[in-house]
Amino acid sequence: MKNSLPEDWGTLVDGYLLGTIRNEDSIRLEQILAGSAAARSDFRRRCNLESALRSAAASSGAEPAPLPSTVRKDRWKAPLRWAAAILTLGALGSPLAWALTTTKLVATISRVSSMSDGGFEKTVGMLPSGFPTRFGTWSGDPSQTAPVADVPHSEGTRALRLISAFSEGSTDPAAARSCDVFQLVDLRPLHSALSSGEAFLELSADFLDERTEASPEIHFLCKICLFSGDPAKIGPDWPASLGQALASSAEFLFSRGQNPAWRRVHTKTLLTKNADFALIHLAAGCQPDRWKGPLELGHQFVDNVSLSLRTQPVLPVRQIKP
């Protein structure tokens, strides 16, 4: 397919995507796109990859700044633009009359303080095994807090080393496909934040694959699930109890080793009003078709886990009957 494209095709599209294209090249690019389905197909793929590169840059960016409990308006242009857009919709799109309320037009972001020890500084040694039975403690499969040798640590002085995969109820090591750690987080203190507007929970974590040689592929998981009711009932039925989740969100990071570096992963979910607690689930694992035999871990770390509450302004309009 690409044989039919000019030699400098990649340069042309890159120039367009990076905003450095000259007018005459833009005209030529348009002519090629108009006459070639292969060019349009390749252009679409490059646009998609451009989008993925931008996401990767966002998720592995610089150290995040400390989070204030309330942020200035000008630092949150996107949500405010969104709210402003809704205002515009109210003014232009409805046959009914709309009017401003006195609602505060401020997006907020704050750390969820009921999540404990995201830097693994307070937990010393091996994590308790099994599913957590109370809020604010880490536990799960074999894993241990430890200093990170030879690689700059992500945050603080320690990180959590994911030591080995474990399969509940199986003695076959080949059946173990992941090392999972969990924390239950009490969300009830956040209910007051849900009185107006939309609220999201954003979970972030740094992961490190310390293997220096090219190695079989593993994945890291950063997941959050929201539940209502009794947290003690989640563990005994795990993972079937996942079906009771009110909402969940997950993000994967894949690695084959070679380039040890911390990489940050984010995932976010809408916080529903009836959510009483969240389950934070972090893991290193592999797909059965990608790693034959027992999964070898021990060079994988997680650190700097944070849970943030983001609120967005309530729809700043109210409807007045005609």
Binding site: N48, L49, S51, A56, A57, A58, F254, Q258
Partner: peptide, 25 residues
């Protein structure tokens, strides 16, 4: 495609990966 890109990025040396992501930072 997006997943393949994420995996391919890990095969680049850190300084090359940094340069690949630089236009978006």
């Amino acid at each position: 495609e997006r997943e393949a890109l994420e995996r391919c990025l890990t095969s680049f040396a850190p300084h090359h990966r940094e340069l690949l992501l630089a236009p978006y930072r």
